[in-house]
Design a protein around this nucleic acid. Structure first.
Lengths: 209, 209
DNA sequence: GTTTAATTTAAACGCTTGTTTAATTTATTT
DNA sequence: AAATAAATTAAACAAGCGTTTAAATTAAAC
């Protein structure tokens, strides 16, 4: 069996690694933790991926492949600008929420280190997504629906940032909002939090003084 | 000399710890790193703070002690609700921007429940700040200025999250917005980013369908 | 069925970690 | 000046780390 392709066992390791990295951080997670939870021998990580660092690389590539496509598809749908924005928010939140771990790593773990070869691919992804958002917003502006003094590159930080801050303070909000179970927590994100972000961005885009 | 109070040497250790924690994370920073950079003996950290975990605790308390006071002062100022919200945002952003390191730690390291329990004091701080925000918003609602279907606990995530996402993607926005120098970057935060957040929250609070 | 390759394993490697010890230096008090 | 307390140090500690080894097991090829 090849060591480059992703077989079931490698994927299993990646899934466990994502879970643990997102819970305890990259440095805070040991290969022994991973191998124990994935029920494989410690040496298998090195055997499959070469090193812990290369495991992280493989994990990033594994998880960040098809978001761009999803957004570009939305771009060409026949929808009103506001509906497109709302759907974009939904895609973003759902996407990040389903891949919490990897986005946590991307935003916090990777920025602290000097991993520019990995960041380059990710930067291109971000630029493309911003371009898509710009297209949607300018469409709404030219239709006279959206106001024109909005700084478009700062919209994404508000969307993503709101989610991240919420999720990063998970224990705090779990207690505050009585989200005792994982289901309750996920439902709150899917409904209330997503709605809050949509409401916020809508207000920002269409509100007139 | 007492071990509880903060003398110059303890403060020196805390400053170094903040710098290294923010650069390399909590797990990624060793006590040897800290002691080397602070030019003290390895044992001094344990001697002064007891453990690495308690050093983090001391660091958090050291850096987040007077924010609560600052916000409670604002609460009793004679200002319109919207002006209070705007000033609150200004306080938050300025505050976080001046203490980037520590807030990075807070977001990055405090996600695990286990650690959150150790830092109950900080949770209380957050609750108090939320209470203050609630007071301001409800004041605006009772005056008929703010809409009433806003989820107040989600306002802070939008304020803080927007800043954090921006700052976490510093290299990306530096290139995108041509913020070539540190001064340009800081000015952008102080002016454009802060204004964007204020504009967003204002729209969220006063926008009517 | 034998040979060859791929997978899996337990054990050990060298190194770093956070913390503790006990001795020494420095400062304070009597 | 002597006695006591505080600060600082080098060294050692056990535990955990990522990684490597070499042997054992399983699968594939001939």
């Amino acid at each position: 069996m090849s060591k480059v392709e992703l077989n079931d066992k490698k994927i299993q390791i990646l899934e466990v690694a994502e879970k643990l990295f997102s819970e305890k951080g990259f440095e805070g997670t040991s290969i022994r933790d991973i191998s124990k939870m994935a029920k494989i021998n410690i040496a298998m990580v090195s055997y499959y991926f070469g090193s812990k660092e290369r495991l992280l690389e493989a994990l990033l590539l594994y998880k960040t492949s098809d978001l761009k496509l999803q957004i570009e598809l939305l771009l060409h749908e026949n929808l009103e600008p506001l509906d497109k924005v709302n759907k974009l928010i939904e895609i973003y939140i759902n996407r990040i929420n389903c891949n919490r771990g990897i986005y946590r790593i991307l935003h916090f773990e990777l920025t602290s280190k000097k991993r520019e070869e990995n960041l380059a691919a990710f930067t291109e992804l971000k630029k493309g997504n911003l371009k898509s958002l710009e297209t949607i917003v300018k469409e709404g502006q030219s239709k006279g629906i959206f106001r024109k003094d909005v700084i478009i590159p700062l919209i994404t930080p508000t969307i993503m940032g709101t989610f991240f801050h919420f999720h990063m303070n998970k224990p705090f909000f779990e207690e505050l909002l009585n989200l005792n179970t994982e289901t309750l927590y996920n439902d709150y994100i899917k409904n209330s939090l997503t709605k809050h972000i949509q409401q916020t961005i809508k207000a920002l885009l269409v509100y007139e003084n």
